[in-house]
Write a protein that binds this DNA or RNA. Structure first.
Lengths: 358, 358
DNA sequence: TTGAAAGCGCTAACAA
DNA sequence: TTGTTAGCGCTTTCAA
């Protein structure tokens, strides 16, 4: 199992190792004749290259690290998928890390990625304040971009959607369907997205004069189970909200489930909305009205920012892409059902960019 | 942004680079006094190590590559999650690759992983025969274990569940609920698991004298949409099967959806089963009876086999773990519904191991 | 227990 | 266009 080295290829082709390197990488001009000889020798020997040695020499690994709070969460899964596809198109490779909502695990991952000399790090930090030191330390050494969520007090690149705009879309839509009161189910406020979504909810309900109550703001975690339990609490009261706004689709699916279990009709008695537009959101009965994030675009921007930062750009960029509202049955708008192409989506374009590199 | 090297730590601590290396890795004995000095120097300088240089020297990267046909498929997602957790516990890192059901993409990934000197490769090949050359080539250079599916004609390690046993569990259960006829919806037969599941279906229906028909065997792809369309075809005929056995949960969820759309009661009119026990299987209405694969165990065995192979074990191991049947409402057994702990699961133990290393 | 020195496989100056 | 040479940062003999 001894690996073939460039020296053996050089010997076989009767040229120097430098020439082999040039011929194979195509970085510098090489005569056709020699290129043929080198290619033949490499093929015959089954030469496959040693990226490690190359990386050490070039101080560049063509490798990106990605850290997410939970691989199993469908939203992050599709973000990972998008990032992987972008990298794969560039011949780069993805180190995938799951922080499991644990800042110490997250810190370990960041350290390890730094030691592995990744060219960049893409992270959805698991906590809005406790993740800050590790994120800052990593960002000081390596280009780093935060995705979706971001920690407080740092000045790194960030890409996500405009959570405020999302809440405006959702609540105006609900208001338009006649809802005049709303509850909000979310995770505890440990990160920026979660905080912004709640702030947006408060702002928009107030603006639209929709009624809410302090005990209609239920904070737990991003999971189906929490959505179910929180909704059960809401349904246990005589005063029911006309709408339940959920901070992600998992919570919303749990809410749908709880309503079904309690014989509450959706959207007849209560309208329900989600956030993220995971694949299963379209499949449930009733299909879920939700916010779609332009994941591919988010991934592409993130990778682009990494490249820019690697070239020594100065100012950090905050890119908020436009979310889009996907109307389905759970808000009674008679929207489409099932997994068909979602033609009602508005084209998600760039929404605002607060600052950019030169 | 210049990285600190071991030489700078050595200078600051007043020792040689060799000593720093020994002190930091803990591989060889170092006096307490010097260890203290080195640790202090490293901390003050913010030394973080260069895994690339270390890897080149040790010819070991503490890195594993994983190639799956589709990151977004919840079954593979959870396999990825399990593998990542096992590796993370060992301080190793995962290169995640999505072959997107494309053998040429897959081949590119395998080449790239080999060039990156990964310590091992874990792969669910996307095709039973067309993936063979690339898998064999990779396996010749690097420890490789196939997960879930495996290609024809190679002799590499493999870990998965016993698909035949799964079909026995499913069909005996269906027979027990009174079903005497069954249809089968699956992907086209491009890989081993798919083939084995169909073979198992044929064998068990015959053994149990359950009626089936050639046009009740519908082969498309592993997706909700295909399950839905295939079921719609079945429901268009006057002769309805009493059960539909689906080769994965996505297909089964599509089948449930089609039945609902056509006003066919599940499990009253037709029983439906899935395969994989993805998280959403428990959430649908009716909740899905399915086969649970011991994912963590599969992941752990795969990583263990990689280590064994790296130490130069000879014979390839084929480890088939025992699947377990999870009974829920879609087969009318009044099983539990919703996402509660699945107490009816039998403990998945080792089922058979056809050969093992010395 | 510590240090000196070689070298992992590759690429980038520099020369020719 | 090609070859020579140095060296990326680390670990590991080998000697002391």
């Amino acid at each position: 199992m001894h690996r073939i080295t460039i020296a053996q290829v050089a010997a076989k082709a009767g040229v120097s190792t430098a020439t082999v390197s040039r011929a194979l990488s195509g970085a510098r001009p090489v005569s056709d004749e020699i290129r043929r000889r080198v290619d033949a020798a490499a093929r015959e020997l089954g030469y496959s290259g040693n990226t490690i040695a190359s990386a050490l020499r070039r101080s560049r690994t063509d490798t990106v690290g990605m850290v997410v709070p939970s691989i199993a969460n469908p939203f992050f899964t599709s973000l990972v998928e998008s990032v992987e596809h972008v990298l794969q198109a560039e011949g780069r490779q993805l180190f995938l890390c799951d922080s499991r909502q644990d800042t110490s695990v997250e810190e370990g991952h960041l350290r390890s990625l730094a030691a592995r000399q990744v060219d960049g790090i893409i992270i959805s930090p698991c906590h809005g304040t406790r993740s800050t030191p590790a994120v800052e330390a990593a960002a000081a050494a390596i280009p780093l971009v935060q995705l979706d969520r971001h920690v407080a007090g740092t000045n790194t690149d960030w890409v996500g959607v405009d959570d405020h705009e999302s809440m405006r879309l959702l609540l105006e839509h609900l208001h338009g369907t006649g809802a005049r009161s709303a509850a909000f189910i979310s995770s505890t406020l440990t990160n920026s997205s979660t905080e912004l979504r709640l702030a947006g909810f408060r702002l928009q309900t107030q603006r639209l004069a929709m009624r809410t109550r302090p005990d209609w703001i239920l904070l737990g975690e991003y999971s189906v189970d929490w959505g179910r339990r929180a909704t059960a609490v809401l349904l246990g009261d005589a005063d029911l909200p006309e709408a339940i706004v959920c901070a992600d689709d998992l919570i919303a699916l749990g809410a749908l489930r709880a309503c079904r279990d309690h014989g509450v009709d959706v959207p007849g008695d209560i309208r329900i909305t989600g956030y993220d537009d995971i694949d299963f959101a379209a499949l449930f009965e009733p299909a879920l009205t939700t916010i779609s994030q332009p994941r591919d675009r988010i991934a592409a921007e993130a990778v682009r920012l990494l490249a820019t930062a690697a070239q020594g750009g100065a100012a950090a960029a905050h890119i908020a892409l436009a979310p889009s509202l996907v109307v389905r049955q759970s808000t009674g708008a008679g929207g489409q059902t099932g997994p068909q192409p979602m033609s009602s989506r508005s084209e998600p374009g760039e929404h605002q960019e607060s600052s950019s590199r030169p």
